[in-house]
């Protein structure tokens, strides 16, 4: 049942992604409205799948959710849902369509990638059990997700800049936010990414200190996480400084996000040895 509901949510998400991308291309309000509806509709089987798997919900289960490999993906997708719904209610509401055109396919891919791990027993091996571990994971994941939104914004920015430079028709550019709006959104996202990731890392350091009386265990995964944090801070500094120009910062943002996501996949899915890995 859980698998069935999860697959149903992926199908609905795929439909929402297609409708959202097409609505942007064809400037169709009808498809936009349906993309939104399908997105919210897909949340029902998605939440249903999570409830079936983890009900009844205790503190122990909460740690289980974030420490198993599928649970980790689930939390990632869950917060993507939450953030996208939040954007729909926030001051970025008018720009939900172009952001959704990148974010919806991304959630679909995250969910689809997690399918093979639904039956996997692999979980984070940290050598201790502490309820703060859940908060460490959640804060770090939310930080990475905000970084994803800045990546989505950067892609849009590069696309819009390319169209404006090529001097093509206004048909598509008219549906996108202005370059400056996209830039403000990206700075907004990266600022939050740094905040949440820093909070997540501080909590991680505290956990390591409590359990091992050291701040750093020199594991590959820890190094990768700190490197991600450094990348995100670099992006924030470049955006705040403003000397490099919107286009170049967007390009750097896209490249560094690709590097971070590669490290994320490597450290969470492929790597299965050492501290903090999924085994």
């Amino acid at each position: 049942m859980c698998e069935l509901l999860f697959i149903l949510s992926i199908v609905l998400l795929a439909a929402a992604s297609a409708a959202c991308v097409y609505s942007l291309h064809a400037d169709s309000g009808w498809f936009h409205a349906h993309a939104r509806r399908l997105f919210y509709l897909s949340a029902v089987p998605f939440l249903g799948a999570g409830l079936i798997r983890y009900y009844p919900f205790g503190l122990r289960d909460f740690i289980n959710i974030v420490s198993t490999i599928w649970g980790h993906f689930y939390v990632l997708a869950f917060f993507l849902y939450l953030l996208l719904a939040y954007l729909d209610l926030s001051r970025w509401k008018a720009h939900w369509r172009p952001i959704g055109a990148v974010a919806l396919p991304f959630i679909t891919v995250v969910c689809a990638l997690s399918l093979p791990f639904m039956g996997s027993a692999r979980s984070i091996q940290v050598g201790f059990a502490n309820h703060l571990l859940s908060f460490h994971v959640i804060l770090a994941v939310v930080g990475e997700l905000f970084f994803f939104f800045s990546f989505a914004g950067s892609l849009l920015g590069l696309y819009l800049e390319r169209r404006l430079k090529r001097k093509t028709s206004l048909r598509l550019t008219g549906n996108l936010p202005s370059l400056e709006t996209i830039d403000h959104f990206n700075t907004w996202s990266v600022t939050r990414a740094v905040f949440f990731l820093t909070a997540g890392l501080v909590m991680g350091i505290a956990l390591v200190w409590i359990n091992y009386r050291t701040l750093f265990l020199f594991s590959l995964k820890e190094t990768m996480m700190y490197l991600s944090w450094v990348f995100i801070v670099i992006i924030l500094l470049l955006r705040r400084d403003g000397r490099l120009g919107m286009g170049r910062v967007n390009a750097v943002n896209v490249l560094l996000f690709a590097a971070v996501i590669a490290m994320y996949v490597a450290s969470n899915v492929i790597m299965n040895t050492g501290f903090h890995s999924f085994r």
Binding site: L170, R171, G174, P177, S178, E180, T181
Partner: peptide, 24 residues
């Protein structure tokens, strides 16, 4: 329909382009 959507006057196109670049 999109019949009145995209401007035809040169001056209005210039304004629309400015709006695609600047927020306010």
């Amino acid at each position: 329909t999109n019949i009145a959507r995209n401007p035809l006057s040169i001056a209005f196109i210039a304004v629309e382009l400015a709006r695609s670049i600047f927020e306010d």
